[in-house]
Design a protein around this nucleic acid. Sequence first.
DNA 1: CAGTGGTCTAGACCACACT
DNA 2: GTGTGGTCTAGACCACTGC
Lengths: 264, 264
Amino acid sequence: MRTPQINTPTTNAANDGNASALGAPAFSPLYQQIKAQILQGLENAEWQPGEVIPSEFDLAARFGVSQGTVRKAIDELAASNLLVRKQGKGTFVATHSERQVQYRFLRLEPDVGTIQTEGPAERHIVFCRRVRASAEIARLLNLRTADPLLQMRRVLGFSGIPTICEDIWLPATPFKGLSVAQLSAHPGAMYSLFESVFGVRMVRAEERIKAVSPDPAACELLEVSADTPLLSVERVAYTYNNAPMELRRALYRTDTHHYKNELN
Amino acid sequence: MRTPQINTPTTNAANDGNASALGAPAFSPLYQQIKAQILQGLENAEWQPGEVIPSEFDLAARFGVSQGTVRKAIDELAASNLLVRKQGKGTFVATHSERQVQYRFLRLEPDVGTIQTEGPAERHIVFCRRVRASAEIARLLNLRTADPLLQMRRVLGFSGIPTICEDIWLPATPFKGLSVAQLSAHPGAMYSLFESVFGVRMVRAEERIKAVSPDPAACELLEVSADTPLLSVERVAYTYNNAPMELRRALYRTDTHHYKNELN
DNA sequence: CAGTGGTCTAGACCACACT
DNA sequence: GTGTGGTCTAGACCACTGC
């Protein structure tokens, strides 16, 4: 939000082709630069989740471009679920708590057709403690080995059946002060808490899925026998700038549920 | 491509608000109608995969709208991977054979970092026969029970290790004449053959994933013991109009590979 | 060079929400 | 009504491709 400067200062309007003669081949369309500026505003928490951002005309004036250009920038941010447009009201910073789907990245759904709404799911936190990063976890979270982490284990159940058992690792610094009490008290999903209390917004995630046999601990927590195959889902969730902020290793029971994926 | 007519004939240019006073609340933006018309052209095979479609200006003239409106329609079709834009050359009908990724919907990748390119994968067709649809398969493919189907079973291997075993069901009518010889002869992926020989283009797919223990037949084909958990992937692939055209039930070995998913 | 898609503008009007 | 996002237009110029 600092610099209304665009590309080379020489030709501001229209299009100025490559930025600098004899320079790097870097050229990005105006709307990409606007997009980057708005993204910067989001990272700097200039606007909080749920708040409106300035109108397209305001932003256009601020950046010295036309409304259509701002529009295209916002279009892309809205497509990445970072902003939400509401006709007649404004453009809002996306938030986790408002979402219909309580579980942002959870792709598990019940086998039976429809009626079973899943309800709010029973949550049980097994433990929450401070640990140090193993080499592997450090690599996935882009930290150094032995960096401090928070680790928690929890079980999610649907209709009284424990279905998901997951270990969660978080870098200690951004989540300083996170406690079991907080986790238990918070009504909504975990990402909603991260957002409202710690200002950490998860933007996208990558999952790696395998089929495994459960270890004894998981057998007990999920109440299954040792020969029941489970879905192993390793998820790394990212904030802005592709910065990894969370690692989850979960085991899903798939006798009554399945992992649903849409391919385009 | 038939009717250059848009919404109500009364006001062609600009925007005419709701189509008919006192009529249904149906209103769709011009670019959506253009999009539908282009889609119609794709369904009617007016342009073949790999071919160019008319330029934005040509289409704009044909439909009696501005170039920007056509552009927005094409934008959405390109976003759904139905069209591919190439600057300076034109807009092309998307094709499977041209794709870098040989396997359109396959999300399995090797665990080890990078170097192993996977190669072209070894393919082995176990059988291919005519069957009749069970109630369940008929439901998934939007057919009637006992409708004629083609069923084939095949095994895919990477680096000499059999990794995927899948059953494929296809409605017999659109795929009349498909033979093992054809399948074996065709160099590329299966969807490429469907497209070039039978004119069936798969546009999107849905997968349901579970963890299972293999049945004896799968054990033998995949060379694993009965207590090795496998990923069960049921995929329904759709053409235009959300018409299901293929059902696959696959088992993936996940000891050396994993299913990779990106969540946004 | 002409033709294509890609970007940008300025202005118009529509649909929706709030007051 | 005013202000917001949503659609549409007409025209300009840029970037890339191929003749």
